[in-house]
Amino acid sequence: MFTKSILLVEDNPDDEALALRAFGSSNFPHPLRVVHDGKEAIDYLLCTGGFSNRNPNEMPALIMLDLKLPKVAGLKVLQVVRTHERTKLVPVVILTSSKEEKDVLNAYSLGANSYIRKPIRFEEFVDTIKEIGKYWLRLNELPQNLG
């Protein structure tokens, strides 16, 4: 059986490494896909560009999206995700360093499901990743034909 993946959109290699480690210790059955900028994220999700060969039926179960991204900004990615039929119901958790009120407001206005600020303390960071996974992948019910 196909297990849905988690898509992490993260341009900072350090944060990527830390996230991977956090995931590793979390024992999720879901594979983690990482893309490094906004354009790549859109291409992956819409199966365009470098991802034109990807099966469009395989949509991630969760998108963890940073806001400050090269090429296409995080909020723009969010907007695209919410406009396309295939992706519009995928849960999007904003995972970022900023907690500017403006960013929080914009993210929710564009349809983010959660807004989480990356904690500095590593233990907290790991806990946060675990909690996100636990909530969105285990507790939360999503429509069956999502994606």
Partner: peptide
């Protein structure tokens, strides 16, 4: 915005890798 985003990211790395 930069301060909150850009200054915090390295801190996270420092703490995270120290912990690792």
């Amino acid at each position: 915005f930069s301060v909150s985003h850009d200054l915090r990211a390295p801190l996270r790395s420092i703490d995270g890798f120290s912990k690792i």
